[in-house]
Design a binder for these strands. Structure first.
Lengths: 143, 143
DNA sequence: AAAAGATTTGCAAATCAGTTGCATATTTAA
DNA sequence: TTAAATATGCAACTGATTTGCAAATCTTTT
């Protein structure tokens, strides 16, 4: 993600460059892990004031443009990450203790694999593979 | 799911048999497709009045007991389905047009496959594999 | 560069799903 | 059946997301 350019990304997505979009985009680009709306707002900070509603709208437009991915957890949270070529589709692990979403190696989600259960008649716009439970770090204090 | 017995399921889960639990459980058992809370309430109908809050609490306890699975879509909806031996873990397809969640063939989600990206140190409590887009039926009227 | 039209943002208020507190009803166990 | 435990219903609350609308910012057209 670090490799991607903000200007190019916005341009290619057909979105005009506004300070708010740049703020949201760089938050997503410069953080390794997927972020939720709250994370994004915290990341942007009070310095570069961006309204919460605006963040929702920006995420919507980014998602529609296909430059970010939305990853819903089975605990009702939604996370966002860049969907550029440097960050190909991969599974995630959600820890219900520390409430962090981490990325798992890409291996396993292949066209080959998808063919196993796709009818081929639907148009697939997104794929989510999510494991959840308790992460290695939280195992000790597991409740 | 049809094959499963309500009494046995509740008993094995260590949950007492109440009319409300039976109502929710049979809604899930006797419907082929995964249901959301609204579907369940509709399914139960005004005849067998069950409070919305109660449905949430029942779903919680069923989920904790491991007799149902929760499937979140990337459109913010949550669906529920039986997790009994007659309905093994499988991927789902969510159509953003008709807003239906359908089941895909099980093939593909195997221990073998999971090993590809699991570190083995986390404890995995649930797995969600979700494709979404536009289903075959909605292709024609695709917007 | 100024004006007009289109797009984006911020704010306040509305909506919606899901939760909590508490009194009542139902179960379970003694 | 009686007491203790558990489950349900209702009303009010929470927190996340959405909507309406006016002000600000961009675009591009003269």
């Amino acid at each position: 993600m670090e490799h991607c350019d903000i200007n190019t990304t916005l341009q290619d997505a057909g979105l005009s460059k506004t300070s708010q979009r740049v703020a949201v985009l760089s938050a997503l680009m410069h953080t390794g892990i997927p972020l939720c709306v709250k994370d994004i707002l915290d990341q942007i900070g009070p310095d570069c004031h961006v309204n919460k509603v605006t963040v929702y709208r920006i995420l919507d437009s980014f998602k529609t443009a296909g430059i970010i991915r939305e990853i819903p957890t089975d605990h009702g949270e939604k996370f966002y990450e860049m969907a550029c070529s440097h960050n190909p589709l991969h599974p995630h692990f959600y820890c219900r203790v520390c409430r962090n979403l981490s990325c798992l190696p890409t291996a396993g989600i292949t066209e080959e694999w998808l063919k196993r259960f796709r009818s081929g008649r639907e148009s697939v716009e997104s794929i989510v593979v999510n494991l959840s439970g308790v992460c290695a770090g939280c195992q000790t204090s597991k409740k």
